[in-house]
């Protein structure tokens, strides 16, 4: 057998058990959620156009091919998307922003202290309620609340970029001994794809004070600014 074939076989054996569907971020996630309405594709958190605002973006059910598949994708009314904010540094959520669809609108609650933390949640209906009509591929709806929050929900172009096909070849061993392709030859699997997106912008005053950065003191890391610890979860109604 040629050398490359031997490497491919050995590489494949070592990586046996790694799903072919592995892909970075959480795009095409674990089998139990892949393709379901709780499937989180990506999570972004960054400073908004207003310098004292933070934007949270959660994308779900990606990737979506353009046209019918995108137009037919809908948020599941039984799925609660929850942005979790830890502002004390203990990795337990101090505030949540909860998002759920009812009919043609997306409802937003919070930021509010959750009644219960962890894997199980109820909707904090007393935590401040806002709504925005769910956008389509052609019509964009946004809302702004009295306390300066902004809301959007609907399909958007997928902003994740990655040579997914080459990654699978590497992981399965068939690409050995080569790695990724150079720029120009590599291909972005997500270039023409879409994803359902929830975008909420929040004045930082509503998030509390940020704790010391968790990475300071780990390994060679120092000097990082105070930062919230945030994550997004998708929860299904029982």
């Amino acid at each position: 057998m040629k050398k490359t074939k031997i490497y491919a076989v050995i590489g494949g054996m070592i990586l046996a058990g790694f799903s072919v569907f592995m892909i970075a971020a959480d795009h095409i996630d674990a089998p139990a959620v892949a393709g379901t309405t709780t499937d989180i594709a990506d999570f972004y958190a960054f400073e908004g156009d207003g310098a004292n605002n933070t934007v949270f973006i959660a994308t779900l059910q990606g990737p979506l091919t353009p046209g019918t598949v995108t137009d037919n994708a809908t948020f599941d009314e039984d799925v609660l998307v929850e942005f979790n904010i830890d502002n004390t540094g203990d990795f337990v959520e101090d505030l949540v922003i909860q998002v759920i669809r009812r009919g043609d609108s997306m409802y937003f609650f919070g930021p509010a202290a959750p009644t219960q933390t962890g894997l199980s949640s109820t909707i904090e209906t007393f935590g401040g309620q806002n709504e925005v009509r769910i956008s389509t591929s052609t019509d964009v709806f946004t809302e702004t609340s009295d306390n300066g929050m902004r809301f959007f929900a609907g399909p958007r172009r997928d902003y994740f970029y990655f040579d997914f096909n080459r990654f699978n070849e590497i992981v399965s061993g068939t690409a050995a001994p080569d790695g990724f392709f150079p720029a120009g030859t590599a291909e972005d699997f997500f270039e023409d794809l879409n994803v359902l997106s929830i975008v909420v912008e929040v004045p930082n005053a509503l998030l509390g004070t940020a704790p010391p950065h968790v990475a300071n003191g780990i390994g060679g890391v120092t000097g990082l600014p105070n930062a919230y610890n945030v994550w997004v979860s998708a929860k299904r109604k029982q």
């Binding site: 970075a24 971020a25 959480d26 996630d29 674990a30 139990a32 959620v33 379901t36 709780t38 499937d39 989180i40 990506d42 999570f43 959660a58 799925v79 609660l80 929850e82 759920i100 009812r102 409802y107 609650f109 894997l119 199980s120 949640s121 109820t122 909707i123 209906t125 610890n229 945030v230 994550w231 997004v232 979860s233 998708a234 929860k235 299904r236 109604k237 029982q238």
Partner: peptide, 15 residues
């Protein structure tokens, strides 16, 4: 908006 919701997916850092 009643009911209990249980985590099926979660994400912090990418990848």
């Amino acid at each position: 908006f009643s009911g209990t919701y249980v985590q099926e997916d979660v994400m912090g850092r990418p990848a």
